[in-house]
């Protein structure tokens, strides 16, 4: 499953001054997991995913997000790992933050900023608080996040 904007560094890559290979920023990105039934079939799941995909460019570069559909066993495994209780839910850095409630833009920014790994990242997120959703790249961002691509039992 492809993750939007993320390329994991090799485990062997030497870590110097918080750089791991070329992927210093990627390593600091906020990880968001969206637990769904199926973002195509279920409108609520779809708009949970869109709440991430419609984040403005400034925020897209600071986050990675992924759909986990419980229609397949990998998704069920993630649901169990994150101790999900309801669908859909958004987890930020492993915390279920929005269980069965589609968040407001500012709520999402604030909850991600709270969990930022560095003060610099938190500041960048807070700086985007007044930007609002951006819809011109939603389709592209959803595709990059694998939305609707891994929602089959055998996927």
């Amino acid at each position: 499953m492809q993750e939007a904007g993320l390329k994991r560094p090799s485990q062997d890559t030497p870590k110097k001054n918080n750089f791991i290979g070329d992927w210093h920023v990627a390593d600091e990105k906020i990880q968001v997991d969206v637990l769904t039934l199926d973002s195509v079939q279920c409108a609520a799941c779809g708009y949970m995913m869109e709440s991430m995909a419609a984040m403005p460019d400034e925020v897209q570069s600071l986050i990675v997000y992924k759909e986990w559909s419980v229609k397949n066993k990998t998704g069920v495994g993630k649901f169990m790992e994150l101790k999900g209780k309801v669908l859909p839910s958004i987890a930020i850095e492993g915390d279920i933050v929005f269980p069965s409630i589609i968040p407001q833009y500012e709520e999402l920014i604030d909850e991600m900023a709270k969990r930022a790994k560095t003060p610099e990242l938190a500041a960048k997120l807070k700086a985007a608080r007044d930007k609002g959703f951006q819809f011109d790249k939603v389709t592209e961002n959803l595709a990059n996040a694998g939305s609707g691509q891994n929602t089959r039992v055998d996927s």
């Binding site: 708009y47 869109e50 709440s51 419609a54």
Partner: peptide, 10 residues
């Protein structure tokens, strides 16, 4: 939601 996108929830 279909008409306005996820912004409707904000």
């Amino acid at each position: 939601s279909h008409l306005a996108g996820v912004r409707i929830f904000t």
